[in-house]
Amino acid sequence: MAGEKWGMVIDVDKCIGCQACVVACQAENNIPINTEDLYNQRRAVQWIRIERYWEGEFPDVKARFIPVLCQHCSDAPCEPVCPVFATYHNPEGLNVQVYNRCIGTRFCANNCPYHVRFFNFWEPSWPESLKNQLNPDVTVRSRGIMEKCTFCIQRIRRSTRDAKAEGRGVEDGARELNPACVNACPTDTLFFGDLNDPDSKVARMSAEETGEHGRGYHMLEELGTEPNVLYLKKVDKNAKEASHA
């Protein structure tokens, strides 16, 4: 089998909407503070976000949560439209954004059906003292650059390098390998690993859950983007195999 293919499994039945993944991602990836102004300009950046959907009306009402992040599509609509090859598919199955190449055409964001690509409309800024917290492994993206979820590639790189130096493989589900959101999630909604390794948790879950009685589905799968993020259906005893768009 050729190399790794990183993927994620998200069990929607466990997601409680607590936002731990969102803030973990902000901290790990040097995402600028989403100020009130940025929210109001609709320019808040959240590489992973929790969407909330209403169903019904009081008193028969449900609010349902789902984490949405870059689906790292195998057939990614964002990739072919980049005129400068800033967004490309790397050999490990990651949809990667090369900041140094990006010229900010925003074609990719326009073409992404999941709305998980974010444009830096402003130069990111932090009060001087808060810069002490910035993660040295992650570039701060400047104005005019597109950015998105990387599956915390810096963690993948660091843990693979460390494993290599110690002459071992990277352990499936290792804390140092997992993206920040996966480690944070208090309910274990998120799983990360190598889909090419048949023994990995995500590969086993994918195999089980995409079967006839499985709960697995891909978001907007009718678009044929072949995402590497597998969602597991929410269990609702009264469900009629459907919900909201």
Binding site: Y53, A239, E241, S243, H244, A245
Partner: peptide, 11 residues
Amino acid sequence: QHIIKLTAEDS
């Protein structure tokens, strides 16, 4: 096609 899909079954 739905963003959140539901199932009555617990697999």
